[in-house]
Structures are given as structure tokens and as C-alpha cells.
């Protein structure tokens, strides 16, 4: 059940493994994976946090605006709250599609190269 590269909870490591990791880390393939990962997760995080706090601050400090009725008893605040649900679902979907298409195949290649060697 422990991996081919040694249990990660123990400090004693085969030095060959460690240099292998450093080599992979510097490889173009890995750098591409890292860039692609950061290019999606950081912007999406910034967007959802900004949108969430904009909403929180409006609900907290702009009662008049949020209490406006759109139709019947449906207020601006209620619609914006429901939009938080919608945006959460949309961001989830965007990320999963991107990860399946742009991250998983690369990670798979790297894993195959390294674990293929080690075994």
C-alpha cells in the first residue's frame, strides 16, 4: 500500500528520488502543467471571492438597494443571492471542464514517465 516512491510521512528518502523530483519540476512538461493549473484556479478564486464579498457588503450596507422589489415580493437581494448559487454552479462546471481537458492528460503523462521509470 505504500507508493513506489516511499511513504511521504517519513523523512528518510532515497536521494535519487529527490533529484528525480527536482528534474521533473524543472521539465517543460511540468512547468506547463503548473502554469495551466495556476492560470485557472487563481483567476477563478479571485472572481468568486470578489463577487461574494461584493454581495456580502451590499447586503450589509446597501439595504435600500437590496430591498427594491423586482416583481411582487421578489427583491434585488433575493435575486442576487440566487445568482450566488448560480455562479457557484457555473464556476464549478468551468473548472471541471478545463481540468478534464487541460490538466488531467498532462498529469497523466508525467505520472506515467516517472512511475514507469521507478518501477
Amino acid at each position: 500500500m505504500s507508493s513506489s516512491l516511499g511513504g511521504n510521512t517519513h523523512t528518510g528518502h532515497d536521494p535519487a528520488d529527490e533529484s528525480a523530483f527536482a528534474r521533473i519540476q524543472q521539465s517543460e512538461q511540468f512547468q506547463t502543467l503548473r502554469r495551466r493549473h495556476r492560470a485557472i484556479v487563481f483567476p477563478l478564486t479571485a472572481i468568486f471571492l470578489a463577487w461574494y464579498f461584493a454581495y456580502v457588503l451590499l447586503a450589509d450596507y446597501a439595504h435600500g438597494f437590496m430591498s427594491q422589489r423586482i416583481s411582487g415580493n421578489i427583491t434585488v437581494g433575493l435575486v442576487m443571492g440566487l445568482l450566488q448559487f448560480a455562479s457557484t454552479f457555473v464556476i464549478t462546471t468551468i473548472y471541471v471542464r478545463y481540468a478534464n481537458k487541460n490538466l488531467d492528460p498532462l498529469a497523466e503523462e508525467i505520472r506515467h514517465d516517472l512511475e514507469g521509470d521507478a518501477r
Partner: peptide, 11 residues
């Protein structure tokens, strides 16, 4: 090691 493992799932 951590970065390579974390992103690629090696090991």
C-alpha cells in the same frame, strides 16, 4: 517533491 506530487499525482 511536494509540488510534483501535488499536481501530477505521482506516488
Amino acid at each position: 517533491e511536494m509540488e510534483v506530487r501535488a499536481l501530477s499525482g505521482v506516488g
